[in-house]
Design a protein around this nucleic acid. Sequence first.
DNA 1: GAATTAAATAAACGTTTGTTTTATTAATTC
DNA 2: GAATTAATAAAACAAACGTTTATTTAATTC
Lengths: 214, 214
Amino acid sequence: MARTTGSDGEKTESAIREAAVTLMARYGYEAMSMRQLAAEVGVQAAALYRYFPTKEDLLFTLMREHMEGLIQAWDSARPVNASPAQRLSAYVENHIAFHIERRHATHVSNMELRSLSPERLTRILRMRTAYEKELRAILRDGAEADVFSIDDTGLTAMALIQMMTGVIVWFRPGERLSIAEVTATYLSMTMRLVGARMETEEARHVHEHAQLRA
Amino acid sequence: MARTTGSDGEKTESAIREAAVTLMARYGYEAMSMRQLAAEVGVQAAALYRYFPTKEDLLFTLMREHMEGLIQAWDSARPVNASPAQRLSAYVENHIAFHIERRHATHVSNMELRSLSPERLTRILRMRTAYEKELRAILRDGAEADVFSIDDTGLTAMALIQMMTGVIVWFRPGERLSIAEVTATYLSMTMRLVGARMETEEARHVHEHAQLRA
DNA sequence: GAATTAAATAAACGTTTGTTTTATTAATTC
DNA sequence: GAATTAATAAAACAAACGTTTATTTAATTC
């Protein structure tokens, strides 16, 4: 046999992407073989090479698009003319929602960096740094405006990101807590961690916002 | 050639362990070949099998001993007849110190769980759960005594552990911050995160303790 | 100092890996 | 409806993998 009835390049490509993310998240990039991936998609291994020239190209594509999606999500969600507390609130909500929705892709992006070539690793890390820079800016603004109490802006940003991204390690959809409940709890932990002093007006607004989503 | 001059089983075994932790942390368990490991140690690949029957046995041994070390470290560091805040303080300090000192082994223990057989995975996860249970107990005691403000004990414990363990991702010894400075900052972030209300006496004590180490 | 044990080598095992080549068929184009 | 293009199958590639076997040498024992 050769080309099968109803075969379509676009469908096959997105099937490859989805299966690759799932398999890489479960077994790891190195442990996933191209034959295993092909079997999951329902094609021969050679067919994969029509869409991705090498295994590493496949990995890099998945990672790059994940990071682009994250940055784009924040670009859409970022509030304009908002207080540091409101901006931080939006950042946390966006970060957690995005990472829970794409747990598998996040897993791959965080765990398989070492399988990239140096140049590609640099490109991914640059995107990550740009995204984290946004958080540092929010923390710095809040500290300068004296509405946050922060010892070390860079260190606090790293701690917050590790804490938030860590959700994907233990969170399973449909278990004890909903996404909204998790987000609300993380939001209040974050605000306490940065020592946010909110005026009653703003505090109520942020709180209502969290409640609304919960 | 066969046995080399000055060869010694114990030395070779610990050389294998050290090289394995380093290589696995850098390249990952799957990506590290037994030949690569042997070359790093300075022996032939077959020699490794005198010490570890399979590659997975080697991984499991490293992980088990890492977890045993962590639990043992906490057993030695845990304070008796102490307040929740003091106990939490001790937990954070022990956790960060241990994980920074053994960054490579921590990396392996966190990243390579999926390469273990189901039975061995269960054994490692049981040890991890037992360790985390200690933190949950501290948080629960603090919440019940009304010295901590915590929404969800389990969730807060996970968030704290992710935050603290995340140190190894970005911390490099000898750079901007010392271990003591990092620990002190994480300690104050932790205390704020759990909403610790400390009486002046205790607050001063905890603070002095942190300063002393800094 | 001969016998024994421990530690390591050298070479090969079968299998699996990512990838390439060649051939074949379905869908599209003119 | 013939020609072309896209998609896939089937088979093969060399290289690398974890592991085993047989052998050799250093160190220890008695």
